[in-house]
């Protein structure tokens, strides 16, 4: 336990210190070192099945963290991702059992997810409300709907074609892994090449001057919120297909894993920077950490503690860096 925690603390601090100049390299080194450590001390860590299930699990969350990071770049936050993730998953299952054809159900569920994002985005840009409080509200609202639908479903298993979705393979691996790689490459290209990303950084750095210089901040923000909810919805449907039944606790606390991962990957709560590909790496670090704790037979109750500590440490490092820079 102490090993894992102190390691996490040391690693994240290290990752933060060098980041300004080295980009996500320290995070990569730390993740690799942790993997190596686990691989050397536990024989089954490097087994193909363990690694594959690790990557597979992370790849689904990566879909959601992609757009989530860009919301953070804009100096907003979307705490409703976990609830929307559950909503899309449970809702598509609900519609399927109501007899809606599969692709229809998926489309409706994704539209519902995007609608939540649209509401978040419009309220944030029109009424200038604090996105933190607002998305806590939408989170509770959506969670309630998820609860109602799960109670109606009573643990029914979803139909076979829907369950088969998550077993779909491409190039010999699950589709979500391919999607993760594609998204990571797209993120890197987007961050290096596109004007839109630079505008997003301006908005996060200084909204007022960005608006004065003609950046369409409102439109970009609404788009980012919609994208964040939509991607969470995609991940949720995929997960629902994977776990084969409706679970009210799906995605509980996911928003905080996302924040931790994004900050590990170089995003800041104060906006203006972020790297979706590195956020995915951050998710890997968290997943490896949890995996390692399981391998060392550490009580699962400690996981909460470690994630809490990791969250505080990364954000503390982010804050101190920000003050110095």
């Amino acid at each position: 336990m102490t090993e894992a925690t102190s390691m996490a603390v040391a690693t994240s601090a290290l990752a933060e210190r060098g980041r300004r100049h080295l980009g996500p390299l320290p995070l990569l080194v730390v993740t690799a070192a942790l993997c190596l450590f686990l691989g050397l001390t536990r024989e089954n860590f490097f087994s193909a099945s363990n690694l594959y299930s690790l990557v597979y699990g992370v790849s689904i969350e990566c879909l959601a963290v992609f757009a989530f990071t860009y919301v953070m770049v804009l100096r907003e936050i979307d705490l409703s991702v976990g609830a929307v993730y559950a909503l899309a998953g449970v809702m598509s299952g609900y519609l399927l059992l109501e007899g809606v054809p599969m692709w229809g159900a998926i489309t409706i569920a994704l539209a519902a997810a995007a609608l939540v994002g649209l509401i978040n985005g419009l309220l944030v840009v029109r009424l200038r409300v604090n996105s933190l409080m607002l998305t806590i509200g939408t989170m509770l609202l959506v969670r309630g709907l998820v609860g109602v639908m799960t109670t109606t479903l009573r643990g029914n298993t979803f139909p076979r074609p829907f369950r088969a979705l998550s077993r779909e393979q491409l190039f010999g691996v699950n589709v979500s892994i391919v999607a993760m790689v594609v998204l990571a490459i797209a993120a890197i290209l987007f961050q290096q090449r596109s004007v839109l990303f630079r505008h997003m950084c301006y908005i996060g750095e200084n909204l007022r001057s960005a608006v004065i210089y003609g950046v369409r901040a409102d439109r970009i923000k609404v788009m980012a919120f919609v994208a964040s909810s939509f991607m969470a919805g995609v991940a949720g449907i995929y997960t629902a297909s994977r776990i084969t039944h409706a679970d009210a606790n799906m995605g509980l606390g996911m928003e905080f894993t996302m924040i931790t991962a994004a900050v590990l990957g170089g995003a800041s709560l104060y906006g203006g920077r972020g790297n979706a590909a590195a956020s995915m790496l951050g998710l890997f670090l968290i997943a490896v950490l949890i995996n390692g704790m399981a391998m060392y037979d550490i009580e699962p109750v400690f996981q909460q503690f470690v994630i809490g500590a990791l969250l505080i440490t990364t954000v503390a490092a982010d804050t101190i860096l920000k003050r110095r820079g």
Binding site: T138, G144, V148, T150
Partner: peptide
Amino acid sequence: EWQSSVIG
């Protein structure tokens, strides 16, 4: 289950 929705 509706309570959470209404409070949200």
